[in-house]
Amino acid sequence: MAERRPETSAPIVLTTGEPAGIGPDLVVQLLQQPLPGSFCVVTDPTLLLERARAIGLDLEEVEGGVAGPGGHLGVVPVLLRAPCSPGRLDTANAGHVLEMLTHAVEGCLAGRYTAMVTGPVQKSLINDAGHVFTGHTEFIAERCGIEQPVMMLATDAMRVALVTCHLPLAEVAVSITQETLAAVLRIVAHDMSRWFGFNAPVLGVCGLNPHAGESGHLGTEEIEVIDPVISKLRSEGLELVGPLPADTAFTARQLADLDVVVAMYHDQGLPVIKHHGFGEVVNITLGLPIVRTSVDHGTALDLAGSGRAEVSSLRAAIRMAERMTRGI
């Protein structure tokens, strides 16, 4: 399949997310060290300058952007709707957050940016402001005209994609159908080739139940849903291993044979990679026509303006986006 790859000379674009959270802090902190690649940021430049002052770090306004000890960063201005103090949420700024995202998505679709990297947002605030917003992933997918995005978490050493994400546990089993599972597995396999350069990626597929159902004694979804999908997709040429009991899928011996693990639900996959990731876990949206990565943490309102925010996840998200745009 011929797929257009954006001009690699175009930059990656960052969004700072919730202005009262640590998103702006992270950009200021990034600029204190040599920058991890070619990117620009869409935000309110005043917000960055104020936040730098609050933390006590060097940052100055320059032509077209801001500059710190680590270098110069282009800023595409999307202005705050109301003044912002670190840690204080204001629904007035929900529009600012959404405008940054819209700008980044449209820019990626138009090829002006090679990828977008998002800072953390406060979902509840955007909803409180009257916008329907279930999350970055869904918002971006909708603007790309995609119905089924897939969330994947990754470190340099490990990747975990999720069949279901922010669902109550009681609804997980019933929402996994042969159709949704097959669609997710196809997307993961396709995007592992497209963005990560695998010729024939090997996907480990977790079971849903304890011991992967133990031949139907501990649940029947493996037999009724997962096995048939695996058989069908294998016949289409996908390399699938499973259904794997979830508690052995993530052992080092098993992981050595897999390029990505597909977990059935949020808490089956996330704790593992967070445990392995040491703050360098990147959230990636698969199934999109564009590259989108994100930090894996929240807005940490209590740390905003303190200078104590940990910048490793954003650094990793930028590195990952860059790597994906090169398809390796």
């Binding site: 109550p168 546990l169 009681a170 997980v172 089993a173 019933v174 849903l208 139940n209 304890p210 011991h211 159902g213 133990e214 501990l218 649940g219 029947t220 979804e221 639900y265």
Partner: peptide, 11 residues
């Protein structure tokens, strides 16, 4: 809960 199908856990 222990050896219980996932769909029955919440209940």
């Amino acid at each position: 809960t222990s050896h219980v199908p996932l769909k029955d856990v919440a209940g």
